[in-house]
C-alpha cells in the first residue's frame, strides 16, 4: 500500500471538515450534512480496493 493513499484521504478529510464549517456557519446545515456524506462516500470508493485485499488476505491466512 502506498503512503500517497493516506495523504489523499487525510486531504479529503481536511477539505470536508472545512466545507462543513463554512456551510454550517452560513446557516445551511442540510447541505453541510450532504457534503459530509459525499466525503464519506468518496473516501469509501478510494479505500474499497484495499479493504477487499484485506479480506482476501484474512481468508488466505485462516484458510477459509
Amino acid at each position: 500500500m502506498e503512503i500517497d493513499l493516506l495523504f489523499k484521504i487525510a486531504g479529503i478529510g481536511i477539505i470536508v471538515a472545512v466545507l462543513h464549517q463554512i456551510l454550517s456557519k452560513a446557516g445551511r446545515e442540510d447541505q453541510a450534512m450532504m457534503v459530509t456524506l459525499a466525503g464519506v462516500v468518496i473516501v469509501l470508493t478510494v479505500v474499497i480496493k484495499e479493504i477487499s485485499s484485506l479480506f482476501s488476505a484474512v481468508r488466505t491466512v485462516f484458510n477459509l
Partner: peptide, 16 residues
C-alpha cells in the same frame, strides 16, 4: 461563502 466554496471545491477535486 461562495468565494471560499469555489476555492475549496477546486482543491477537493484536485485531491481526488
Amino acid at each position: 461563502l461562495y468565494k471560499s466554496l469555489g476555492v475549496i471545491t477546486g482543491i477537493a477535486i484536485v485531491i481526488v
